[in-house]
Each structure stands twice: as C-alpha cells, then as structure tokens.
Amino acid sequence: MNSRETILARVRRARTSSDAVIATRLREHPRGPLPNMSEDLLTRFRERAARLASDVQGPLSAEQVPTAVANYLRERSLPVRAVRWPSIGSFEWGTVGMSVEARAARADDMVGITGAFCAIAETGTLMLLSGADTPAATSLLPETHVALVPISRIVARMEDGWDLLRMEHGLPPRAVNFVSGPSRTADIEQTVTLGAHGPYRVCIVLVADAVTGIARPVVG
C-alpha cells in the first residue's frame, strides 16, 4: 500500500463520511456569521485601510489620477518611474512627468501601479488576482505600491469578494492576494515595523469613474 492509501485508510478507520453532506456543503458554500457594518462601504473602507497604514486618496475622477499619483511620489521624494499592470490603460502619465512601463515587475522597480479585482470594506483590504495582464509581483517587489481602485468595486466583506470571483471568473486564478497595507514585521521585540520584504508603503487611489482594466482583466 502506498502512503496515500495508508494515510487515507488510517483516516477512514475513524470516519463515516457522507458524500452527500459534503457535496451540498461544497455546492452551497454557506456563509458563516457576518460582521455588521453600520457605515457605508466607502467610509468603512477608507477608515479601515488608513488604520492598516495604507495612504488613501480620492475618490478622484479618472483624469485626476496621474497628477495625484505623481504628487504622492514627489511629496515623498520617490522616483516617478513606475511599472504598471499591462491591464491598466488610458492614463496620461507622461503629462505629469511620469515614466510608466507596462510589463512584469523586476527586482529594481521602485514603484508598482496596479488595479484591484475589488476592495473589501470590512478590513480595508485589496483583493488582487493574478492573470496575464495583472501579474502578482507588481504589488510585491517595488518599495511603493500604488493601487487604483474604482469605488464601484468596493464590496462589504471577503465573502462578497468570493462571490464576485465565482461570478466573473469561475475558478480562482493562480494567486488571489489580499493586501492590507504595507508589509510589516513584529518579529523583533514585537515592535511593528513597516516594510519587511514587500512594499514600505501602499497608496490606494479611489477612482470615481469606471476605467477599463483597473478592476479586472478585460474578458477575452
């Protein structure tokens, strides 16, 4: 008997599983108790994201976005060269003096600009899906992560994110990353320090208009 069969036999010895119960659970994926939220989603999201040390801007109109991003970077003396998700289009980065390339992120990229599949008001979290033109490392390798988030994509809870994922994509992509502020560690003396292995700062730019490509990969 191979290890798989040995382990399963040991497990089964103590089990009396019902396939029907499990099929139902998987098909209906029932939600557990959900947190109450008294505020509207935008207010809750802004407040929670700020608590997690994300810098929240907007809501802005689409044409205000490049200026806001450039100002954010310049105010902090950060480079205005950036890598962006190829999915993001139609922003006039050049007019604000930024140089933005659409490709996968590299180790020496200092600023990464992404959209978000959706944003979760409960915790102030971004939900990012990996994909052909939404690579995972853009929100990870650079020291500064700028995320453009349409306010129409703010959902209440993680469960709403799962529903949206099932509805728009069916199965999950290779990586679903929930991002809640800059990377951090408290391993030394339980003292929270921002900027561990991922970004030192996360700038969330809330966008009031519908813009193609920042919320989800273009279907196709």
Binding site: A132, P173, A175
Partner: peptide, 30 residues
C-alpha cells in the same frame, strides 16, 4: 483584523501569466 497578506494559491503559472512558479506541489503530512 487581518494580516497584511492572505494568499490563496491554486496551481502553477497559467500559460499566459507573466509571473508565478512553473510547478506547484503540495505535501500532505500525517
């Protein structure tokens, strides 16, 4: 309320993906 990153990893890099591992293995330990 949530950790900085929660990553849900399913399979390896898809054909058109720009990043991600080419091979994905799970070892289930008894």
């Amino acid at each position: 309320s949530i950790t900085n990153y929660v990553s849900v990893l399913t399979g390896h890099k898809r054909a058109s993906d720009l990043d991600g591992p080419e091979h994905f293995h799970v070892i289930l330990v008894d």
